[in-house]
Amino acid sequence: MSVVDYSLQQLGGPDLVNMEGTLNHSELFRAECKRLIQESDKACKRMQDEDSKQLDQRVRDIQFLKKELELKLEEIILETDVLVALQIRVKKALEMCQEPLRVTVLCLDERKKRVPSERLQDDVNMGLLKERDVMEGVVPLLEQVAEQITEQIRLNRSAKYHLEKDLKEKFVAQNIDNSCALMTVHSISNQQMSKYNSTALPSITVTPKQWENMSDFNITKAEQQKNNSVSLRTLVESVLQQTAADMQKQFQATTAAIQLNIEQIKFAKDQMDEKLAKILTEINSQQTISEDLQAAITEHEHFLSLAQTRMALRKQRPGKEQCHDPAQVQLLAEIQQLTAHISK
């Protein structure tokens, strides 16, 4: 300190040293404030950029999962529609079994009305019984298949519900994150800022991995139900084809047996008609010959009566005239022969 400064300080004048220090300190403080402002601005911009990047990445993640969900949803919807169409086919197949079964049972009942001599356990009867057994086996099988289809449709629609719910939530989240990405300090009001100014996380917050796993679970579940549905459709198609083939085969076998039986009955009837005509002709001939025999007997009785009358009349001859002459012998022989002819 110079002698002059010391003299001024001793005399109670202005403290130039402190003033100079204060000014220097003020300049340093101002410089520090400017530096702090610049660093804060850079940090804000950097955080804003990082926020935008994270929000953009989040939106892309949501879009990716949305596409996966939409694809799986489309697949499960199409599969469900195909399964519903198959369910209608199975119901129609069940309805179509009722009338043939009724006709088969009616045929069996009608055949029981045949005369006892015709009630045979023939190929027709065996064919009808087998036909009834085949259809009675097909009906419960198709009913079981219909129940399986109904249950699978329910599972498909459950998977569809969860996919649609997930998609709806993804859509809302995407819109919110898009809005957040577009926000700036100048685009929101003070009211909005105070409204959303909360750093507390909601209690249902999940990790990104958990978030992804939940959608993957819905996708996997839908894929599993779709695969189950495809497998069931393959099985049902096989059952429909096999049952239709079995029924058609038995129908053809029974029809062939009926046609063969009809031909055999017709052939036997034709033979009996032919024999009947011959028998009727023979009966007429027998009636004619019977009449001829009766006429011959009557004629021979007349001759016998004549011979007997002659014999009786000759017995009235006088005693010495009653000799056993050739006429008498002839009459006796004639009477015996005529009696024998009449007896035959």
Rank of each mutant, 00 (worst) to 15 (best):
L280A: 11
S231V: 15
V84H: 08
V90P: 00
L260P: 00
E301C: 04
S117L: 05
Q248W: 03
S290T: 15
L120T: 14
L78W: 01
Q316S: 12
S305G: 15
N190K: 15
S238D: 12
Q121T: 15
L235V: 11
K320Q: 12
K66Q: 11
V206A: 04
I204N: 09
V84F: 04
Q225E: 14
R317I: 06
F267W: 03
K91Y: 14
P202H: 00
Q225L: 06
F251G: 08
V230H: 03
Q252I: 08
A222F: 03
T207N: 01
P202Y: 01
K67I: 11
S2M: 02
L129Q: 07
D122Q: 04
L304K: 03
F217P: 01
A222N: 02
A307W: 01
S198D: 06
L313R: 09
L36K: 03
E164I: 09
E68L: 04
L338K: 01
N178V: 15
S117T: 03
Q152S: 09
K34Y: 08
S52E: 08
A256Q: 14
N175T: 12
A159W: 04
A173Y: 06
C323Q: 12
Q337P: 11
M96W: 03
Q121F: 06
L69P: 04
D246V: 12
Q252T: 14
K249G: 09
E136P: 00
C33F: 10
I262E: 07
R35V: 07
N213I: 14
K195W: 09
